[in-house]
Every structure is written in structure tokens, then in C-alpha cells.
Amino acid sequence: MTQQQTTARIDQIKEWILAKHKNRTDVGVDEDLVDSRLVDSLSFVEFVFLIQEVSGVEIDMDTLNISDIRTLAAIEKHFLAT
């Protein structure tokens, strides 16, 4: 995966978050998505499905460590790394 492809995938995830939070215009790469409540427990399942779709990586929600998806940087590292 090229850096350009990775950036496009992160942008897809960012757009999904921003679509649900109209008061926001951007999401920092190191911003904690859970603590800031950009992703909460009710939107979490859909969020994981989105990461699966964007990355092509199957995620087992029973064993998932939330730290792996707490920030866009973590998502990139764990699911979109080349």
C-alpha cells in the first residue's frame, strides 16, 4: 500500500467521523477518538466495520484492544501499515 493510498484510507475514516459530528471540521491524528467521544460504544461496532472495509483486515471484536483504534495514527499503524 502506498503512502498516498494509506492517506486516502485515513481520510475515509476521518470523513465518517466528521459526518457524525457536524460541529467538527477536523480530527487530529493523535486525538483520542474514545475519550473525546467521537466514537462511543454505540457507534463503535459500525466504526470497526468501517476500518475492516477500508483496510481489508478482519477484526475480531472479542479480542480487539481499543488502544489499537483509539487514534487515527494507531489505526494507520495497526491496520493500514504498508
Binding site: 460504544s41 463503535f44 461496532v45 470497526v48 471484536m61 472479542d62 480487539l64 484492544n65 481499543i66 488502544s67
Partner: peptide, 8 residues
């Protein structure tokens, strides 16, 4: 649990 999702 802080680092686990809800085991629905």
C-alpha cells in the same frame, strides 16, 4: 474495562 469493547 477501558481497553475492551462491549462484548455484545
Amino acid at each position: 474495562q477501558r481497553n475492551r469493547p462491549v462484548p455484545w
